[in-house]
Design a binder for these strands. Structure first.
Lengths: 230, 230
DNA sequence: TCGCCGCGTTAGTCGTAGCTAATAAGGGAT
DNA sequence: ATCCCTTATTAGCTACGACTAACGCGGCGA
């Protein structure tokens, strides 16, 4: 599809590179191999696409393929993230899709929803600040509030906290497990016993006792100082 | 985008050919030129794509490029139409987009919404039978109720009728004019004076007198015998 | 009958974005 | 210092779906 007249400014594929760079790039430059893995394409495809993106001043290329978003690239990426999170929220709240399904669907729709429809979605949701997984939604300018959250596994024995965000929503099975355990944004958790050495954690969530290994908790983020303790 | 693993069964482009063939094909075979015009592509592109579709047994090709959907092609086309109309209804009723905007948006989304989301949309609308323009929505099997409607311009002087469907919703300006005049599905109209020779029609719509030429009425379809006269 | 016009087809390209196979370049272990 | 291994790059292809240019043919007016 050459699509000369109606071709989107930035293709689906490019948008996916943006997002992947944003998500992998928190700690500096992203190697080609990491991008290839994340996007499910071959390394040469990545090299090739990065060259294009660099030409368009969306990424800076270091030596040995190290890629880093430029300011304008980051803005573009945050706008894709905004679409993604608004869509997830919409799919969950309005269409009542399950928590575990919305990521996959938003992944596709984010590339095809017009500004007009996105605005309507945002209006119909009352300009939500967070998606169903607790992630903040970037604003129209691509600004994202910075938050300092801690991993649930870092909570010491006896402490209480509130779950704010669950990361790793790409894996539906993981989300389903968390939901069953009550590990959803807003939930109050009480760390009954944390044994970081053994990697065994015993918690009370919504009145129920849950024992979990470290991996089972990985991605669940809590607020350092709980706002309230209902 | 070769997209080998995740390529949709039938591409966006093919879906558009299906729909165009369905809509242009009511009176037999469709010439290449008509398809090219409708789809905004060159004639060679059409010849080429028709050859592919014929190979896939979705169209039959007559001499001089006359194309006609096969049974399975028609079914495919009706399923695209189903998506389109469900989306239009959703965009109008849930996202509250204007009547005149929904066609354009649905035109894009129909190719990218998954079965799962489409089902959710249908559920959230309570399985609507018609879209905002009064067009019937094909069911899951691609079945479309046959209806016998008449053009509003054929209504004789003095007769009353109810608007059931407005065709030509691709043109937002046209829709906006109709809406302002009150020519929406469900509206009661009273033909005060029909002068088909001169092409001048005087109607009463929702208590307001409207004078229109034939073109202004073209596509507005009424029920032969109004169900009720509120 | 000739010629032209409109329509359709054939032939050859382009752009996007993927792929594999083969080649370079850095870094560690021997 | 050398060899090897991982990682990245280059070269060359593929598929899809557009495009233009050029050719073929049927029908109609002169």
């Amino acid at each position: 599809m050459q699509d000369t007249p109606a071709r989107p400014a930035v293709s689906r594929s490019r948008q996916n590179y943006h997002k992947a760079l944003l998500q992998l790039g928190t700690g500096g430059a992203v190697p080609v191999s990491a991008l290839a893995r994340r996007l499910g394409v071959s390394a040469p495809s990545v090299t090739n696409m990065l060259a294009h993106l660099a030409e368009e001043r969306l990424v800076d290329l270091g030596p040995r393929g190290a890629a880093k978003l430029t300011a304008s690239g980051e803005r573009a990426a945050l706008l894709v993230l905004r679409r993604h999170r608004l869509l997830e929220t919409f799919l969950a709240r309005v269409l009542e899709l399950d928590w575990s399904e919305v990521h996959e669907e938003a992944e596709e729709l984010e590339h095809h929803v017009s500004e007009r429809v996105l605005d309507a979605i945002e209006r119909s949701l009352g300009h939500p600040a967070e998606d169903p997984h607790g992630h903040p939604i970037p604003d129209r300018q691509g600004r994202l509030p910075r938050r300092a959250l801690s991993p649930l596994a870092a909570l010491p024995s006896g402490a209480r906290a509130r779950v704010r965000e669950v990361r790793g929503g790409e894996d539906p099975a993981r989300l389903t497990r968390w939901k069953r355990a009550g590990l959803v944004p807003g939930a109050e958790v009480h760390m009954l016993e944390a044994l970081p050495e053994e990697g065994v954690f015993t918690l009370e969530i919504a009145g129920r006792r849950v024992v979990s290994g470290r991996e089972g908790l990985d991605g669940v983020m809590i607020e350092r100082r709980p706002r309230s303790r209902a």
